[in-house]
Structure formats: structure tokens, C-alpha cells
Simulated scan of single mutants.
Amino acid sequence: MRKLTYLIAASIDGFIGDPNGDAEFAMQYVAGDFLEYLKTERADTLPTMARQAFGVDEAENTEFDTIIQGRHSYDLALAIGVTSPYAHLRELVASNSIKESPDPNVEIVSGDLAARVRELKQEDGLGIYLCGGANLAGQLRDEVDEIVVKTYPVVVGSGMSMFAGDFRADEFALDAVRAFEAGVVVTTYTRKR
């Protein structure tokens, strides 16, 4: 069975962006050995434009072949005229307001998103990358099998949390911790079932 991985950047105090979801605070740390890690071990998760800029656009997908993102994340691409921001992956966008996909590579999912994810998990293939904000992660909280947090060495004080929704303690087991020169720490957790 395929797994759903929520791979997200966060501040030390656990925020993934400002109140509107902007995560520019993290960009200054994407350099050195951490950038090499992204290019060599996490190239699947890079937008197609970044893959091209970093010279890894021909890299074979090794971990993910599908991405689910929310409307707000997708709007960032649409704002610059990109209708398929992750062209190297099968793209799903969760939206109740987009009625027709602007790109043949992008499937618009409205309605029961969790049911659609359960269907995807039953298919053959690589993993499913959850790329989005708190609302999307909150909707899919029960379906998340793995969380990978890229923690940046900055405190922002307030902003968007990793998950929206009611208070509830879901347990995850620590799988790996990896530190980089610029102070970024990547921590991987697997859901306890």
C-alpha cells in the first residue's frame, strides 16, 4: 500500500508560514549541504521550475509519483502562469472553487478528499506527497502515514500551524533526525497504528 507523506517546512516554534501561509523565512537556509540534500535525496518534492534551475529536471522519481496540494499552494503557481507546477508528478489539487482543471496533468478534487486519498493508496506506485497548508493537512490528518519536518533555525512567534482542526493527540514514532550546516534539521516520523 502506498503511503501519504506530509513533508513540510517549519520554524523552530512549529509554524509553516505567516498567517497567510507565506514561508519566505525559510528560503535563506536553502543552501550548502541542505540544498544538496534537496537536489539529490528529495528532488521529487521540488517544483518543476526548481528542478530545472538546479539541473535535476531529468532525475527519476524515487520516492513520490503523486502530489496533493491545496488551492492556496496551487494559486502561487497560477499567479506566475504555471498550470502544472509539479509536472514530473501526478498532480491533484483539492479545491471546491476550481470547476475545471487548467492543465491535463492536474486533477481537481472536490468533495471527499480523504476518500480520494484512500483510493490512491490502493494503487500501485510510489508514495503520495502532501504539499499544502494547515487546512489541507487537517482534512487529511487521519490519512497521513509519515511526517517529514524540515525545521529551520528561526522563531517567528505566530502564523500558520502544521494542522488545522480540533485538539487531538495522534502518536507518531521517531524514525530519523538529520542536521545540516545551516542549522536546518530534518525529522521523520511514522504514524503509530
Rank of each mutant, 00 (worst) to 15 (best):
M1A: 11
R2M: 00
K3T: 07
L4P: 02
L4Y: 04
Y6F: 09
Y6D: 09
Y6K: 14
Y6T: 10
L7V: 09
I8C: 06
S11L: 03
S11D: 06
S11G: 00
S11W: 01
I12P: 04
G14C: 01
I16K: 03
G17P: 02
G17F: 00
N20K: 08
A23D: 15
E24A: 12
A26Q: 04
A26K: 01
M27R: 14
D33N: 12
L35K: 15
L35Q: 09
E41R: 14
A43Y: 06
D44E: 05
L46I: 07
P47A: 08
T48C: 07
M49N: 06
Q52S: 12
A53L: 11
F54D: 11
E58G: 07
A59P: 01
N61P: 01
N61M: 02
D65E: 06
I67D: 05
I67T: 07
I67Y: 08
G70T: 14
R71V: 04
H72K: 11
Y74I: 02
D75W: 09
D75C: 10
L78M: 08
A79F: 01
G81E: 12
G81N: 09
V82W: 01
T83M: 03
S84D: 12
P85I: 06
P85Q: 03
P85R: 12
Y86E: 05
Y86N: 02
H88S: 12
H88P: 09
R90H: 01
L92M: 08
V93G: 05
S95F: 00
S97L: 10
S97A: 09
K99N: 14
E100R: 08
E100D: 14
S101Q: 07
D103H: 15
D103F: 00
N105S: 05
G111W: 02
G111T: 04
A114Q: 06
A114Y: 05
A114H: 03
R118F: 04
R118N: 15
L120T: 04
E123T: 14
D124R: 10
D124C: 02
L126E: 01
I128C: 04
Y129M: 02
L130Y: 02
C131Q: 13
C131T: 06
C131K: 05
G132R: 10
A134Q: 02
L136D: 08
L136Q: 09
L136I: 15
A137T: 05
A137V: 02
A137W: 00
G138V: 05
D142S: 15
D142G: 06
E143D: 15
E143A: 14
V149I: 15
Y152Q: 13
P153C: 05
P153H: 00
V154R: 14
V156A: 15
M160T: 11
M160Q: 10
F163T: 08
F163G: 09
G165F: 02
D166P: 09
A169W: 12
D170K: 04
V177A: 10
V177H: 02
V177T: 13
G183H: 14
V184H: 04
V185S: 07
Y189G: 03
T190W: 10
K192M: 12
R193N: 14
